[in-house]
């Protein structure tokens, strides 16, 4: 029963995600210029039903992750710029492949940071909250790629 409920939840989330940016906004009569999208901390808090302390913990973990990710983020931007330049300049495939490998290494470090933050948060959840962590797992995807994880 629990598993079925979870599947239904995931399906609903996937449909919303597939609509890309719908988020209910296009389907309501609310003024179009009004932004109704909650911040990520709000989304996480609602989805996991975090208490005050847990919310603080999540914010601290993600703030720390963001700080740690900052240099990687810059590296990733430069790396992708280099790949773009190599392609547009018609460089050899071997050269491009080398740049791609470097990019993948940076990406894996970023993935490591994301997952470390995820694990920290997961471990701070109560047993009844942990089954809902799949939403958090999805949200961690690229969370430190923006200047602020909470935007």
């Amino acid at each position: 029963m629990f598993f079925r409920l979870l599947l239904a939840g995931i399906l609903a989330a996937s449909l919303a995600s597939a609509q890309r940016g719908g988020g209910g906004k296009g389907a309501s009569n609310t003024p179009i210029m009004m932004s109704t999208q909650p911040d990520k901390l709000g989304m996480i808090t609602d989805a996991l039903k975090l208490n005050k302390d847990q919310k603080k913990m999540v914010k601290t973990v993600l703030d720390d992750g963001q700080k740690e990710a900052a240099p990687l983020r810059d590296e990733a931007i430069k790396s992708r710029q280099a790949i773009g330049e190599a392609i547009s300049a018609g460089k050899s495939q071997a050269e491009i492949d080398q740049l791609v490998k470097s990019q993948a290494a940076i990406d894996s470090q970023m993935a490591g940071l994301e997952m470390r933050a995820f694990v920290k948060i997961y471990q701070g959840l109560d047993a009844d909250q942990q089954p809902r962590a799949q939403m958090l797992f999805q949200m961690m995807n690229g969370i430190f790629k923006n200047k602020s994880w909470n935007e």
Partner: peptide, 17 residues
């Protein structure tokens, strides 16, 4: 898709790393 299903507002944010 970007984190949070926000629709890729900044374009360059990749969901994967």
């Amino acid at each position: 898709a970007p984190a949070g299903g926000a629709g890729g507002r900044s374009g360059g944010r990749r969901g994967r790393n």
